[in-house]
Write a protein that binds this DNA or RNA. Structure first.
Lengths: 115, 115
DNA sequence: TGCTTATATAAGCATATGATTATATGATAT
DNA sequence: ATATCATATAATCATATGCTTATATAAGCA
């Protein structure tokens, strides 16, 4: 017995709602190619640290990303073993690569700080 | 020259946000297999007519669905020529069929009214 | 014409969301 | 121990969202 059709729709809409924010969507796309540290996101999005932290918490609470502390830094990565990862991935595949953001950071020497 | 990466993400998150509501997501999945009349949605979702109308307007404003008046009734259908239809479709494909809702309506003889 | 049915729009309201500022926690280094 | 850096959490606030009720529009019919 699988889940009821209704539950599945509820679940899917919950995931889509989370991805329906440009910051979180970009985060997910970025995390597909590299793990990222919180401080990098702060630089990339030019957004306050608490704002970044709160977006990441939403993604983590639902299990889409994993976090790992290394010293003072916390690194986030995609949780590929999430039950709905294939679904999420099928969406992310359609989005443009966000490597430029990372490249810009490296030019500015900002990425070195937490590595 | 394609759109900027940033614009594409904005666009995608806007679409995902629209689909990130269980009513609208179910509507889209239903519309994939049949066109539907407003009054059918009212029955299916047990929701007020204005609430249904407002959801449909959001979907129509962004071009995901088309509307066609036939007499007193307005029928909605998927707009397959929407630029992002393939993207939307790749999401809908992963959702369970919603034909039960329609079948229930037919049992109750409610669907006949607007045909 | 006026009455009914189907749908859309407007206004109001409660709740959700996403940001900010201030503060707490946790790790490192002196 | 304490100062500093990175991050999380709490409190607050403005705006967005999704519903409701009331009303407007549009079509069909007596």
């Amino acid at each position: 017995m699988g889940k009821s059709s209704d539950t599945e729709i509820q679940r899917a809409s919950q995931l889509l709602k989370l991805l329906g924010d440009p910051t979180r969507l970009t985060m997910m796309k970025l995390l597909k190619s590299h793990e990222c540290c919180v401080c990098e996101f702060v630089e990339i999005f030019k957004m306050s640290q608490p704002a970044i932290s709160q977006h990441l918490r939403k993604l983590r609470d639902i299990g889409l990303v994993k976090e790992e502390r290394r010293g003072q830094w916390v690194f986030f990565s995609i949780n590929e073993s999430h039950e709905e990862f294939p679904f999420i991935n099928s969406i992310l595949i359609n989005l443009p690569e966000q490597d430029e953001s990372i490249a810009e950071l490296e030019e500015q020497g900002l990425r070195v700080s937490c590595q």
